[in-house]
């Protein structure tokens, strides 16, 4: 053994290192366990399936904003469709503008079919699933996106 070799680890320092290691392992595990708590296991939230009324209420070519539900219901010759009015940028509510929809918070602009025509929004406004309840009323499920152009025929 040359003078330059590090001294071999003796029993005492090995045990000190091992106990120190177990201390930090325990601390880390405890911290990780505690950090799990703020991550919610259940996401509470209101049901986002909205009954909007009987289909006859909406004439062909009409467009009806539902402010509380954050969506706009359209009816054209091919059927019903609903577009979410929650901006895909940072979640503000878009308002109707001349060329479609405009967001008050950061200036995203969408055409009347929800496609992005300006501003920072990364995605078009989602089209939402339209269906009917047993009593014949229209239902929009705001948690279910459908491809753009999907119509619901009555």
């Amino acid at each position: 053994m040359s003078r330059l070799d590090p001294p071999p680890l003796n029993r005492r320092s090995f045990l000190s290192l091992a106990s120190l290691g177990s201390f930090f392992a325990a601390l880390g595990t405890a911290a990780a366990g505690m950090l799990r708590l703020p991550n919610p296991a259940v996401l509470p939230g209101p049901v986002r399936r909205f009954k909007l009324g009987p289909p006859e209420q909406f004439s062909a070519g009409s467009e009806t904003p539902f402010a509380e539900q954050n969506l706009v219901l359209f009816r054209d010759d091919e059927g019903f469709y609903a577009i979410s009015s929650t901006c895909t940028h940072l979640g503000c509510t878009v308002a109707r503008s001349k060329d479609g929809f405009a967001c008050p918070c950061h200036g995203s602009r969408f055409d009347s079919k929800g496609s992005v025509i300006g501003g920072p929004a990364p995605r078009p406004l989602p089209w939402l699933e339209v269906s009917r309840a047993a009593n014949g009323e229209l239902i929009v499920n705001a948690d279910n996106e459908v491809p753009e152009g999907t119509r619901y025929r009555v």
């Binding site: 402010a67 509380e68 954050n70 503000c92 509510t93 308002a95 008050p104 918070c105």
Partner: peptide, 9 residues
């Protein structure tokens, strides 16, 4: 008001 933000917000 969760329905409408101020304009501008």
């Amino acid at each position: 008001n969760p329905a409408i933000p101020e304009n501008p917000a």
